[in-house]
Simulated assay, not measured.
Amino acid sequence: MRISASGDAVLAFPGTLADSDAQSDVRGLGAMLYALITARWPIRSGGLTGSAATVGGLRLADFGADGTPVEPRQIRPEVPFEISAVAVRSLESNKGVRTAATVQHVLEQASVVDQKTDFIPVLRLGQRAQHVPADESLADPELLAQERERSQRMMWIMVGLGILAALVVGVVIWWMVSVFAPGASDAPLDEQRNIGLTTNSTPAPAPAPGAVPSTPTGGVPVPVTGVTVFSPEGTPDGVNNVAAVLDNDPATVWRTDQYFQQFPALKKGVGLLATLPSPARLTNVSITSPSPGTSVEIRTSPTNSPTLDQTQLIGTAQLGDGVTEIPVQADQAARYVLVWITGLGTTGSQFQSAIADLRFDAAP
């Protein structure tokens, strides 16, 4: 056996003698383990007796009344129980450890359960170790079995905790992917955006001066002087093409961002705030949209930069494919009108709505 500068024990120049058998190999393992722990040789050879006798520079171990060497823990109390016991049991030819696999298994358990094995101080050749009274219970086979059972139980607990941690990490990763990972979309790749970010689009042409859409009977069309994106939670959606809702052209549309969860999971909603030339008492709102299933609320606002709580609900509807007429009941005239989207249309695995045109009608 050779001991490296880092303290590792290595079998050097291995060879098998003609009269060797499995039991003698195990006994040799036990003897080497005993010597590495105590710096004493535990096997008596012919003619070697007394405390002054040495083998390879190692003095002989102390032997008990039954003719077996004292346990390493009696010499070095800091040695773990499993290591001390297997060293002595390997030396017993009849009732001790009989296979090298058992020696390896016990040593592996001791290294996992009792990390104190990493801190046992090196005992140099010729150094005297402190002798302490023997503790007969340490050699009890029943105690050894209990310690082994405890070690196995600890190992299974660690395995269970590892599996539980892996499951938790897997669930978190699945949730993050389902919320944030982009899905299939017909939009160009350069138009894909994360949640809350706007989508780059080519600005829609401004409405023709004086263009006024047709109106149903019973109301007077009200022109719109301006429109902005109302998004109290996060970045406004599609600000570059918001003017498309005023050009009276169904081919040009304003779109919300693409969301991976329906409102109100990520935010309560998004809308368009229209400004009229003067306060008007609305009777009808017409919305042209290619996004059936979109839920909208029509609200009036006292200012051009309100909070949602400051607006007043005057009508609701679920948009169809094309033109949807929404009758409204306003208590008083208002100059600012909010089209508030509370539910998005579905596009594949994502949620998005579009509005092509808006028309407002007021009482004559």
Rank of each mutant, 00 (worst) to 15 (best):
G67V: 02
P279F: 04
P205N: 11
A363Q: 13
V103N: 00
G96E: 04
A204V: 09
P223G: 10
L344F: 01
R40K: 11
W156S: 13
W174C: 08
S301R: 08
T68W: 13
A208M: 11
V10K: 08
P223A: 12
A356S: 14
V242C: 07
T49Y: 14
V328Y: 01
K268M: 09
R148L: 14
H105W: 07
M155T: 12
I157T: 13
V171F: 14
P72G: 07
P232Y: 01
V253C: 02
T199N: 08
V227C: 07
R359C: 01
D8K: 12
T288W: 10
G50K: 09
M158P: 00
D257T: 14
A110D: 04
W41L: 07
A5D: 10
V88C: 10
K268E: 14
V26N: 05
A187K: 14
V328P: 03
D237V: 03
I163V: 15
V212G: 04
T324N: 09
A204M: 02
P213L: 14
E325M: 10
Q258W: 07
P209E: 07
P213F: 04
I195F: 15
K268C: 00
I355D: 02
S353C: 08
S278C: 03
P306L: 05
L123I: 13
I37W: 01
T16V: 15
P327M: 07
R27K: 11
S231M: 11
L33A: 09
T252K: 05
L189P: 03
Q332G: 13
T16M: 12
A187Y: 12
L29F: 08
L189F: 09
D66E: 10
D62L: 11
E82Q: 12
S45E: 14
I37G: 02
